[in-house]
Design a protein around this nucleic acid. Structure first.
Lengths: 249, 249
DNA sequence: TTTAAAAACGCATAAACATGCAAAAACAAA
DNA sequence: TTTGTTTTTGCATGTTTATGCGTTTTTAAA
């Protein structure tokens, strides 16, 4: 294996997992830890990564992703995202909003996927821009700084003009009675637009969001077609949703 | 076997595998490793491949390589940006597009500025999102991945509905005869929309862009109200523009 | 503070490399 | 054809690079 390939491998792992461990890489690549250390040093010297004790973390040159807030329950979210990816087919038109789970989805989309993706999330759009084949349509509007997403009438109108195959919602709360609910009124309105524009609605939610409620309603539970969590599909917590006819992944 | 055939063979292997090994090629092509090395050197000199210790890799192997670019002439751009900031007043409605200079402007806006800023550039919007008081309106549309900016009819329409106090253009080329010109047709169209939506048009351009031309016209020089470069305002290079009645900063 | 893991450093070595040179081949012109 | 020139190639030479292994130093967590 060429050194160059190792460096690429490291950068790629870093892109997917946000961090790499020297010991782990040494095992995966069958070279000594010293070599890995030298690789990391080189990448670090070139400003590509940030070397830390034990490995390295992403240090994107992109000024935006500087906010390197740790992603809460990243492992669970990765599990969810991998299930969600299996639901996406080539050629589909997809609407997705923001949130860390959806961002992770954007990051991990298969290289060879061809799709058209509508979004109102700046980070998601930026992540998708690195994908070679997906077409990205950004819904314009007033930017909500805290969410780095556009909101308002214009966004809603944009989405209302689409008939999307898939709507993928990062979800704050799901409840069998209260349906999908959100904490921000404006965001809830945007999500509502996504719901009505999507033929098939997928909710990505870590399990702790199940059976919780927020003040603003996005959609009745009957609108939800597929629920993706990190739990195995036969988990007890998911049984009530299954009974409602919702597909569980 | 002709040398040309070998080179073709190498390029083809590289296309398939993204890498070639000197030793391997030497065996496959029945020539010495030295010859292969010379072949690789030639292809590398012509920019076709990237030569590395042990063989060569395709340029695309490194996924992040295209992001590497440091900001060209950053110091000059900071000078420009500081002058440009002095032209902005509280409460104004501003349209700005993308480019490194405009991104730098977004980064350095005074903390206490209150303004409404329309943009079609993802990085600019993200940067502005860190500002406490400006309102950001993002113009939606199809995302041009290379520029990380939206383009197309929708963007143009968004801008056409505005009457902005200030239009701030990052500028590829300015010429007293040819006006403001751009290298990308779609981007040029968007800039044209900015021009006609702005009551006062400001062009930010490092001096080396003066008196140069690109294929697509954005605006006649008569539409330009203020030209900001890193040069002192009494510089010889700016005199012709001054004569045309353009404000120089 | 103690301590185990990680990193840095120096060193050794084998593989890959650049360079100069000469032989062979291809080519051009007389 | 003959002769002179250029290109291509392989080989011998010394040089550089990549890597692993001890040893010492630093780090971070208990």
């Amino acid at each position: 294996m060429l050194k160059e390939e190792r460096l690429t491998y490291i950068l790629n792992s870093l892109r997917l997992d946000h961090k790499v461990l020297t010991a782990e890489l040494s095992g995966q690549l069958n070279v000594s830890e010293d070599t890995i250390r030298r690789d990391l040093k080189e990448l670090s010297d070139n400003g590509k990564i940030k070397k830390v004790h034990g490995g390295a973390v992403a240090h994107s040159l992109n000024p935006f992703s500087y906010r390197e807030r740790k992603v809460y329950k990243l492992q669970d979210k990765i599990t969810i995202v991998e299930k969600a990816i299996s639901l996406i087919q080539n050629g589909q038109v997809i609407i997705m909003d923001g949130g860390t789970t959806n961002l992770e989805l954007a990051r991990r989309l298969p290289e060879d996927l061809a799709a058209t993706i509508f979004t109102n999330s700046l980070p998601v759009a930026e992540q998708l821009a690195e994908h070679p084949t997906v077409d990205i349509i950004f819904a314009g509007g007033k930017l909500l700084k805290s969410a780095l997403a556009t909101i308002g009438l214009e966004v809603i109108q944009s989405f209302s003009e689409i008939r999307a195959d898939l709507g993928i919602l990062g979800t704050r709360s799901v409840d069998r009675e209260g349906g999908i609910t959100e904490i921000d009124w404006e965001e809830a309105k945007v999500k509502r637009a996504i719901v009505s524009a999507s033929q098939h609605l997928i909710s990505l939610a870590i399990s702790e969001k199940l059976d919780t409620l927020q003040p603003y309603k996005v959609a009745d539970i009957s609108h939800l077609h597929t629920l993706v969590t990190e739990l195995p599909s036969d988990s007890q917590a998911l049984a009530p949703y299954k009974e409602l006819g919702i597909h569980i992944r």
